[in-house]
Design a protein around this nucleic acid. Structure first.
Lengths: 197, 197
DNA sequence: TATTTGAGATACAGACTGTATCTTATACCA
DNA sequence: TGGTATAAGATACAGTCTGTATCTCAAATA
């Protein structure tokens, strides 16, 4: 039970209490991760009892969700206007970097335990699925055939098709449609490799 | 306890038992998801007791990891050799599509509960961080300025910088370095938009 | 056949969940 | 200002799951 400075019992209500609860939940989430997140501990941390939490959120996932929303809502992003396309896009990415908190924190809380436990990262798992070295092999053969000039293709461009493919697979959690595969290769990868010949 | 056809008690050992355990774990994982995954239930499903599981894996996460590896290991991917760069890359992506199981299943088991609970997908979260519509706005202004010809930039290319950025952020769970941002914009996005002028 | 290994059963303490019930501080209203 | 309604906070309960420990006995090995 929370006490006043003079030791009298004190009862928070409404928004004040709710904020304290969500802040405590958020702290637990970021400190211990989703796997070890317990309503019990949130209540203790907030200096109240579990009943108060259950009165507001039916279960763990609802509370987690509320805590994430409460602590990451930052309003919509604003389109930068620097006067040039390059400047705008660079500014947009920089801005996203700062606002990245939302997504990354959610992912960390969800994946953190698994990462720690397995010593694996998302990138390792992707790597295991289709090693980036394979693109090296493919490119080397293209160079041998004279399709591509040696040293012309940066690492980032070389990995581009796989990265875009995986991004799409991750976002949709579905097989990537054939049409998307061909679009990636024909309108993005090959033009970059061949310098729009 | 497992029984023989004639009702005599029967004890599996070694690989036979281990496969049964991992199959049971996998079934629990795919049917109920990571959140509800319980060693208890795996043991029951495999027709044995928890002690047998704890003898092999120290805890839940280790068992989950082993089950994922056991049920998705398909050996290393083979570099396709179709005789052209385009053919090779398309084949590689198609092949990855079929092998995608590993990554997607791991993610589903990790994120599935959250998705169900929140009604949010990874794409929604990404979208909330920096709406794709912003790139539209940026591009529109570039067209007004005469930097870009109208109708020249496909949706996929328009979203390319954000997608590559997010892919990198997701994989590393770190801020994307300034140098990577500029590389994405200067060596990939702008060349595609301007047709390598 | 004797010995070793480890499967399978069971019991335990502890943590956490979700529900229910009680007292009482606080807000609101007559 | 005093009475009443609301909900905070405490507590108790049954149930599930965890991780550990201990026991018996089936099966592999020598």
């Amino acid at each position: 039970m929370s006490l006043n400075a003079d030791g009298a019992p004190r009862r928070r209500r409404g928004k004040e209490l709710e904020n304290a609860l969500l802040d405590a939940a958020w702290a637990e989430l970021t400190e211990r991760g989703y796997d070890e997140f317990a309503i019990d501990r949130v209540a203790t941390r907030a200096g109240t009892s579990r009943a108060v939490l259950y009165r507001r959120w039916p279960g763990k996932q609802d509370l987690v969700r509320a805590a994430v929303e409460h602590n990451t809502g930052e309003g919509p992003a604003i389109a930068p206007d620097t006067g040039s396309l390059r400047g705008d896009v660079v500014a947009l990415l920089r801005q996203t970097n700062e606002r990245r908190r939302t997504l990354v924190t959610v992912l960390m809380t969800r994946l953190g335990g698994f990462y720690r436990a397995s010593g694996t990262t998302l990138a390792d798992l992707a790597e295991a699925g289709a090693g980036d070295s394979i693109m090296h092999e493919v490119l080397d053969r293209a160079i041998e055939r004279g399709e591509v000039e040696p040293g012309q293709v940066s690492d980032r461009i070389m990995q581009l098709p796989l990265h875009l493919f995986r991004y799409e697979a991750l976002m949709t959690l579905r097989p990537v449609p054939e049409q998307a595969i061909e679009e990636i290769v024909d309108t993005i990868f090959l033009p970059l490799v061949h310098g729009n010949r």
